[in-house]
């Protein structure tokens, strides 16, 4: 295992090159999905997290295997970071029976409950109270796990945010609310939709810690989330960690991005979280240019293979339509 010496708490002991590979897996997965939607090979819609790889991978990297997450409509990255297999994710987007949801959920509902992924969610703000409930189970059954609840800047304007954060704070539930502030809720700029700059500031209203981290710097994310997770596991209750980041692509496949400038996009592309982490690992001697490229190529191949897996997987039959409604 590769280790750096002078790194923040929560980062020590982690296989950092494996995290870089996860970020590439997400990048390649999303780019492949983007391509397939453009070509009409996948139907429906999708929300891509290109540019947000550090907040997903960094947040989940500090978890233990028993910990759980709730995700969002922009959830592919969270799923991959929580250990989802690219094969089964791609198969889900292709609507195949080998997909995580047997082709019934699609992009917005990928879940793996047994592995602690309680699901992406098509309802903005839908995960807040579900995460609180999962944390309540941990508390009542003394299971010791922590729940990470991902949400966006837009979701923090939903009423569900307030109700769940209040509830989680009074019961000191072991949940950490991770705001991936990518600056826009669909076309709505966060700066126009909130009267404050930082979602993390809302933590004050619940008497819990709120911290802003650089969402494009995985080490900063790990440090901030690690602290919040430790606190939750120690029974001290929830926190908000806000990762400032940016989605390179539009909101969904039909977005002409008229609400922002190409210059702004270029500024954020220059802050590519993958390029940044790659150069840190090379500077620190954990990777060479060659081994970094090899890692990247491996990730690319894994995604290419997932496409083959998906294409060769069976479609559901019409008999499957009415299955799985009730337990």
């Amino acid at each position: 295992m590769n280790q750096l010496v002078n790194l923040p708490a929560g980062v020590k002991g982690k296989d950092l090159t494996a995290l870089l590979k996860q970020m590439w897996l997400i990048r390649y997965f999303e780019e492949k999905v983007d391509e397939f939607f453009a070509k009409g090979m996948i139907h429906g819609t999708t929300h891509l997290a290109v540019g947000q790889e550090a907040s997903a991978v960094g947040s989940i990297a500090v978890l233990e295997a028993r910990d759980k997450i709730t995700s969002t409509h922009r959830g592919h990255g969270h799923c991959i970071a929580k250990g989802a297999e690219a094969n089964r994710m791609m198969a889900e987007l292709f609507g195949r029976t080998t997909g995580y949801c047997k082709g019934k959920g699609g992009s917005m509902h990928i879940a793996d409950v047994e592995q602690g992924n309680l699901g992406a969610n098509g309802i903005v703000g839908g995960g807040f109270s579900i995460a609180a409930g999962a944390a309540l189970t941990s508390q009542l059954k003394k299971e010791g796990y922590v729940v990470l609840c991902f949400f966006g800047d837009g979701a923090s304007n939903e009423g569900s945010f307030h109700e769940a954060l209040n509830l989680a704070s009074i019961w000191k539930l072991p949940v950490v609310f991770i705001c991936e502030n990518n600056q826009y809720g669909m076309s709505g700029p966060a700066k126009e939709m909130m009267n404050i700059e930082d979602v993390a500031k809302r933590a004050e209203a619940y008497g819990i810690p709120g911290k802003v981290v650089d969402g494009n710097d995985i080490l900063d994310v790990m440090s901030g989330v690690g602290e919040a997770v430790d606190r939750a596991r120690d029974g001290e209750g929830p926190s908000i960690v806000e990762a400032k980041t940016y989605r390179w692509k539009g909101h969904s496949k039909s977005d002409a991005k008229k609400y922002r400038t190409r210059e702004e996009e270029q500024e954020w592309r220059a802050k590519d979280p993958i390029a940044k982490f790659r150069s840190v690992l090379i500077e620190e001697g954990l990777l060479t240019e060659e081994s970094a490229d090899k890692l990247k190529a491996e990730a690319n191949k894994e995604i290419e293979d997932s496409v083959e897996f998906a294409k060769n997987s069976p479609m559901p039959t019409l008999d499957d339509l009415m299955e799985d409604i009730y337990a």
Binding site: G126, S129, A132, G133, S138, E163, A164, N166, L167
Partner: peptide, 23 residues
Amino acid sequence: NTPISEAAISGTAVGAALTGMRP
């Protein structure tokens, strides 16, 4: 005893049920 938060209580019940409780 919960706060007056029907949205949060119902969602909390969903999350607890999904993870092994019977609320």
